[in-house]
């Protein structure tokens, strides 16, 4: 809009965006006000309902003494490793299932079976395999994401128009190049759907794992809040968890999805 080509549409579009943003801000301010009011009425003791101000102070303190930052860093490291591995494995397995009948009949049915199992049910197994440490949590994250990514890739591969593959073959695409240059890019919109779902499962499993296995991270901070009876820490950490979820969605997935829509022509921008 800043290149001087702001047309009527862009102008109104910008205006509308501002307007809905404003509504959102007002809503959250009101919510905080209501919360403050409830606290002020003193119906519940402070260890049940802390004031928004004390939650804010806890947040600031957490960032100042870096305990929150360290928690965030540790959690992000775990999810980055677990999710990264599951991305590689999930796409690979999805390609196998999508392209080869034999894997569809075997691995495919295994995956649809495993998908009915809530990820946290892997915890006991994970503890026995890896012990009480990082790897157990990373494994949980991995199990949370890998199935969604594999099924997303599988459906993407099955939806690649055969014409693309034939066209690529007549231009000399063979074997892994066919996968790398045609099948994966053509399946990408579906892979992203799987990745997005996988991310939310992974994030949940990470928190579950950190709550149950005591070894740092955001989930651990949350649990610590409970043990210290420090409700404002509990809520502060919850807010951080929500915030990270929103940020990843906005900064990563929404960008990719918009890029895909523009490329594929699913939306006029």
């Amino acid at each position: 809009m800043h290149n001087g080509r702001a047309c009527k549409n862009g102008y109104w579009g910008g205006d509308l965006k501002m307007y809905s943003m404003l509504k959102r801000v007002i809503f959250f301010i009101l919510l905080a006000g209501l919360w403050e009011l409830l606290f002020w009425l003193g119906i519940w003791p402070e260890y049940v309902l802390p004031s928004p101000v004390s939650v804010g102070k806890t947040l600031v303190r957490g960032f100042q003494d870096q305990s929150l930052l360290i928690g965030v860093a540790i959690s992000m490291k775990r999810i980055a490793i677990g999710y990264g591995i599951s991305l590689g494995v999930g796409v690979f397995v999805g390609l196998l299932i999508g392209r080869f009948r034999i894997f569809e009949d075997t691995l495919g049915s295994l995956i649809s079976g495993l998908q009915t199992l809530p990820t946290i049910c892997w915890l006991p197994l994970s503890l026995l395999w890896f012990g009480l440490n990082d790897n157990a949590i990373i494994f949980l994250v991995f199990m949370g994401a890998v199935l969604s990514i594999a099924t997303g890739t599988d459906s993407g591969v099955k939806n690649v128009p055969p014409l693309y593959i034939r066209a690529a073959k007549t231009m000399g695409a063979k074997k892994w190049k066919l996968y790398l240059e045609v099948i994966i890019p053509a399946a990408f919109p579906h892979i992203v759907i799987g990745m997005k779902q996988g991310w939310s499962f992974a994030w949940r499993s990470l928190m579950a794992g950190e709550l149950l296995i005591v070894c740092l991270g955001l989930g651990h901070l949350l649990m610590l809040g409970r043990e210290l009876n420090d409700m404002s820490q509990v809520i502060a950490v919850m807010l951080v968890i929500i915030l990270i979820g929103i940020l990843v969605d906005r900064l990563f997935f929404m960008k990719i999805e918009r890029h895909i829509r523009e490329r594929w022509g699913l939306v006029k921008s």
């Binding site: 014409l163 693309y164 034939r166 066209a167 045609v182 053509a186 990408f188 490329r263 594929w264 022509g265």
Partner: peptide
């Protein structure tokens, strides 16, 4: 081909 078979990505 009849449909151009260009790659949308």
């Amino acid at each position: 081909f009849q449909e151009a078979a260009l790659f949308p990505w």
